[in-house]
């Protein structure tokens, strides 16, 4: 059989719809995992041994169990306890929880890297702990963590392909349909591979420029 990409042309709109679903799921999961990551990082760096222990157990579990197992746990398990949500929502929740575990590790090291003198200055000026976390700890930790958080996000995008196993027709799911419709799996999956790789490359470029933008004030200006 010849390698022929033209047979894919009529299926491009369908694949784009899948790509859009992937983008939506990843965007929502990015927000979800950042929120969870911040919360869990706050708990892990808190002075309460119980909270920090609980946060550690969460991170340890979700980092060491395959995502597909986590996904099946939620997808098949939630209806068991009377929670009926669609595959998309389940996927976003599972991605957020797994991504949250990885993000929290990154954010935690960002927090631990903050100069204690800065926190002391905030403390003696009478700022409350929540304000210190929101106004000082969080922005500093997030800014220094842009690059490693970017890697977590790229992994999130790659992992989102697994959502196709719970009947969600995101990019990989749609490609599966096109592959079986056209009987040209090699072309379809080869293109898909390139698409994902280009997508993650573009994301890494965007992360690089975001990092430079957010850390502008670290560079001395000429004025």
């Amino acid at each position: 059989m010849k390698f022929d990409l033209t047979i894919l042309a009529p299926h491009v709109p369908f694949l784009l719809k899948g790509a859009l679903l992937t983008a939506e799921a990843c965007a929502l999961a990015l927000v979800g995992s950042l929120i969870i990551g911040l919360l869990v990082a706050a708990l892990r760096t808190s002075s309460s041994p119980i909270l920090s222990r609980a946060a550690f157990i969460y991170v340890d579990l979700f980092r060491n169990i395959p995502f597909i197992v986590q996904l099946f746990f939620f997808f098949y398990g939630l209806p068991e306890i009377g929670i009926y949500i669609d595959a998309f929502t389940t996927g976003v929740i599972a991605l957020s929880i797994a991504g949250g575990a990885f993000s929290s590790d990154v954010i935690r090291s960002g927090i631990l890297a903050i100069d204690t003198g800065i926190l002391e200055a905030a403390e003696v000026s009478g700022l409350s702990k929540p304000v210190i976390f929101r106004k000082i700890v969080m922005p500093i930790a997030l800014r220094t963590s842009v690059r490693p958080l970017g890697s977590v996000f790229i992994n999130l995008v790659l992992t989102s392909s697994i959502l196709s196993t719970i009947t969600l027709n995101e990019l990989t799911g749609s490609a599966k349909i096109v592959a079986s419709d056209t009987f040209r799996p090699f072309e379809v999956y080869a293109v898909l591979l390139i698409v994902y790789a280009s997508l993650t490359y573009l994301i890494s470029l965007a992360i690089g420029s975001l990092h430079r933008r957010l850390n502008r004030d670290r560079m001395p200006d000429v004025a």
Partner: peptide, 22 residues
Amino acid sequence: ELLKNSPVLVQLFLVFFGLPAL
């Protein structure tokens, strides 16, 4: 770089479904 930056599931499909067809 290509292998690192694409989903393993897609690589798996390429080998399992794509290679026999090609």
